[in-house]
């Protein structure tokens, strides 16, 4: 018997979760990112691969609505992220996207549990203690739930950051260089964990990296070249 379809807190998205049309970005008269037309289907695992300076972070900022592209358009969950006003972009990001950074950016004054609770409160307007406990258990941090970020190891911190990104049950999880600082074994474990949790929650995964070690794990790869 198939397991029930995992649900995010949004309605089911029809069509591609992320779609770009003629997308590029220019800074100081120089093209810093060029993707053109591209689609990311729901529940896919996609890799944004490219060397430093190829525009990976720029693209992530555009996908998450933190940056308005110079040319072209981008749609997230069917909504035109690039032309929404700032408040609209903030709302769309809050409803659809979870973010994982290389430096984690957990709130240092809060415990792991409190970090997740804060993310849930801000995104959903309520806190589900049971869901938080389940998520912490899923990433293997039950014994560290009360610990502050500075008390966690690098691996524990990354698991906490993934848990925070997914606790709001987003459609899209965007990870920026999540494995760059890890050795091979920990990088593999990190990707395993992201795949597992994303699949369990029905999230789509977009990982930006210059780390070639994890490229073979992704079926959907978007190679970015440093623009000339």
């Amino acid at each position: 018997m198939p397991s029930p379809e995992p649900q995010t807190h949004l309605n089911k998205v029809e069509g591609p979760l992320v779609e770009t049309r003629g997308l590029s970005h220019w800074r100081d008269g120089r093209c810093v990112m060029q993707i053109g037309d591209w689609q990311l289907q729901p529940r896919a695992h996609a890799l944004l691969l490219g060397p430093s300076g190829s525009g990976k972070t720029t693209f992530i900022n555009i996908v998450t609505g933190l940056l308005t592209p110079s040319q072209g358009a981008i749609f997230v969950a069917g909504e035109p992220m690039s032309i929404l006003p700032p408040a609209g972009r903030d709302g769309l990001r809050r409803r659809t996207t979870g973010l994982v950074f290389q430096t984690l950016r957990l709130i240092p004054a809060l415990s792991v549990t409190a970090n997740l609770a804060l993310a849930q409160q801000l995104a959903l307007g309520q806190v589900d203690r049971a869901a938080i406990a389940a998520m912490i258990d899923r990433v293997g941090l039950s014994h560290r739930a009360a610990a502050r970020p500075r008390q966690l190891s690098q691996g524990e911190g990354q698991r906490a950051a993934i848990a925070r990104a997914l606790i709001t049950r987003p459609h899209l999880v965007v990870a920026d260089e999540p494995t760059s600082a890890l050795d091979d074994a920990n990088a593999a474990r990190m990707i395993d964990l992201m795949f597992e949790v994303a699949d369990a929650t029905g999230a789509t995964l977009l990982v930006a990296t210059h780390d070639g070690r994890i490229a073979h794990r992704f079926g959907n790869r978007l190679n970015l070249e440093a623009p000339q």
Binding site: T64, L66, A87, D90, R93, R94, G98, L99, F101, T103, R105, I107, P108, L118, A119, L122, A123, R164, T168
Partner: peptide, 15 residues
């Protein structure tokens, strides 16, 4: 960085 992160995960400017 924390403040920016809070904005990213959904905190409004007013919040």
């Amino acid at each position: 960085g924390d403040m920016a992160m809070l904005r990213v995960i959904g905190a409004s400017r007013a919040a």
